[in-house]
Amino acid sequence: MKERLEQLRKEALEHIEGAKDLKEIQQIRITYLGKKGPITDILRGMKNLAPEERPKIGALANEVRETITEKIEKKWKELEQAAIQRKLAEESIDVTLPGRKMTVGNRHPLTRVIEEVEDLFIGLGYTVAEGPEVETDYYNFEALNIPKDHPARDMQDSFYITNDLLMRTQTSPVQARTMEKAKGKGPIKIICPGKTFRRDNDDATHSHQFMQIEGLVVDENIRMSDLYGTLEYFAKKIFGNDRQIRLRPSFFPFTEPSLEMDISCKICGGKGCHVCKGSGWIEILGAGMVHPNVLRMNGFDPEKYSGFAFGVGVERIAMLKYGIDDIRHFYTNDVRFLHQFFQKD
């Protein structure tokens, strides 16, 4: 009997070892451990053994059964793992093939600049004002202290529709309209982005249509130092904290004092190069304290109120910021150009 059990153990373990799949293992389990299996048989035939033999053989039979059970479970797990591995291997793909990318569009670079500037000033308490592209002579010139015989009003430089209507040459008429609407009561804090027009032939540096952003603050006690602080904030936010700024006195009919702002050249860091024409500085905007005539003409008392205004070319900012060399790119809408502005800064 003992030999029989040893023989069974050996035989079963060999079978288990040689099993190829889960089905085979299942069969082995039934064969050896099932109710009709040899071990059950032996245990059932114990009564025929000598009483002193019984515990020995019983213990051995149980040991053999446990060994086989253990081995079967182990093998089962092994084969199960192997089956999973095989399935995974079958399902494996070339992960380097391109993904199913969705086409996603993006803002035009000029809108991108405008929104950035808008958000910057919204943070400072400004609202966004807009106005018509076709303006009257009054709002475009007269209300901005540009009298009838002023050279800036030359027919040669503006697109006229009638003697009194023209394509606005600047976003400044929005200033006049906003002040007029405020009926002499401040504060006004606005930023005005928009399309503007000059009678130019389109080339790498000129465009008959271009965009400007105008800023206007009118309140009691607005100082030139407020303008300086505001412009520095703007320049550093848009162009980076490492850029220096410089104010130069200048002239505009609608501001007094007037100034232009330069930022230090990014390319040469201020030492002078071809981009800044050797000066180390790049001009980016015009600004000044609102001219008392402009305040008065638009219903504000210049004794009580003061203000500042600034105007900046959107194309110019975009060109400097992104290194664009031809203004026509903005209006050609070549998707290879537009798509470059998909990514973050």
């Binding site: 969705m102 086409t103 996603v104 569009g105 993006n106 803002r107 035009h108 000029l110 809108t111 592209e133 697109f159 394509m167 399309k195 027009f197 008959h208 249509q209 903005f330 209006y331 809408n333 998707v335 537009l338 798509h339």
Partner: peptide, 13 residues
């Protein structure tokens, strides 16, 4: 833009 269109700017005239 999320649906795939790119913003363009063209001339008013």
């Amino acid at each position: 833009e999320g649906l795939g269109l790119m913003q363009s700017i063209t001339y008013s005239l």
